[in-house]
Simulated scan of single mutants.
Amino acid sequence: MENNRETPNTNDDQTNDTNNVQGIRRGRYVEITSLIYNITEVAISLTAGFATGSSALVSWGVDSIVECNSAAFMIWRLHGEEKGISDREVRKRKKIALSVLSAAFTIAVLFICYEAISKLIGQESASLSWWGIGILLVSLVVNPMLAWGKHYYGKKTDSPSLKYDAIDTMICEYQTIVVLIGIGLVQWQGWWWADPIAALLIVPYVAWEAYEAGRDAWAVDVDQTED
């Protein structure tokens, strides 16, 4: 008599696992691209910012340093997931990454406040930097593309971290617009105070990121057991 009982289909599970690994790998490639681009942002914006006395450009560059850290830790974490490390190790890497990011964002807030308030007190006006404006304009195009890639692969692999990082990248887009407006008002309206004010407008978002990263790090239980 023929046995008609169904047997578990492992082919679908293997296919899903393969697709998930490929999605994680491509998400990691997006983060590598993000890291390389953010390093470029840091180099140009800080050089131009210090050379012209622009608090807004310097603050934007400092935030880009934090974004570099974020991308580097995401690469580290995704590489581990791609290699199939244990759930406990994934949670451990997540806790470390979020803790470091929270500290980095906090330091960035303190530095930006110091830089901007010093310029306001000294009433220092920033000069024009076409290099600075150039990297800001490039970022207006590049950041949405990076954010789309992070969100796409985050959704495809069900990775909250990638989707969360996509939101961070779009916040950088907002900051880029604010800095451009600040520089424009200084150069074309003569409002010397617009540059440090633009820098201070970045602070609430960076401070919120510091809080959220710290809260999420605290919530991660490395030794949690599955139900």
Results as ranks from 00 to 15, higher is better:
Leu137Ala: 15
Ile167Trp: 14
Ile171Gln: 11
Val220Ser: 04
Ser129Thr: 12
Glu31Gln: 13
Leu98Ile: 07
Trp131Ile: 07
Arg28Ala: 14
Ser125Phe: 05
Ile183Leu: 14
Gly27His: 05
Ser161Lys: 00
Asn19Gln: 14
Leu201Val: 13
Asn11Pro: 00
Tyr37Ile: 03
Ser159Glu: 02
Tyr211Asn: 07
Thr106Gly: 09
Tyr174Arg: 08
Thr15Cys: 04
Cys172Gly: 12
Ser54Ala: 11
Ile177Phe: 14
Ile171Gly: 01
Leu98Glu: 12
Arg215Tyr: 11
Ala43Ile: 15
Ile117Arg: 04
Val178Met: 09
Val141Tyr: 12
Asp216Asn: 15
Gln189Asn: 06
Ser99Asp: 10
Leu200Val: 06
Ser70Tyr: 10
Glu124Met: 04
Gly49Phe: 08
Ala116Ile: 06
Ile39Leu: 15
Gly27Ala: 13
Trp148Met: 06
Cys68Asp: 08
Ala71His: 09
Gly49Glu: 00
Thr33Asp: 09
Gly184Ile: 10
Tyr174Trp: 11
Leu146Arg: 08
Thr176Arg: 03
Leu137Val: 14
Met74Thr: 02
Tyr205Met: 14
Ala56Arg: 02
Glu115Gly: 01
Ser102Ala: 15
Trp130Pro: 01
Ile197Gln: 02
Thr106Phe: 07
Leu46Trp: 09
Asp13Met: 10
Ile133His: 02
Asn143Asp: 04
Thr15His: 14
Ser129Tyr: 11
Thr10Cys: 07
Tyr37Trp: 15
Glu124Tyr: 06
Phe111His: 07
Leu200Lys: 02
His79Ser: 15
Asp227Gly: 11
Ile121Cys: 08
Glu124Thr: 12
Ser161Met: 00
Ala147Lys: 06
Ile181Cys: 03
Leu110Arg: 04
Ser45Met: 14
Ile181Ser: 00
Ile24Met: 06
Thr47Ser: 11
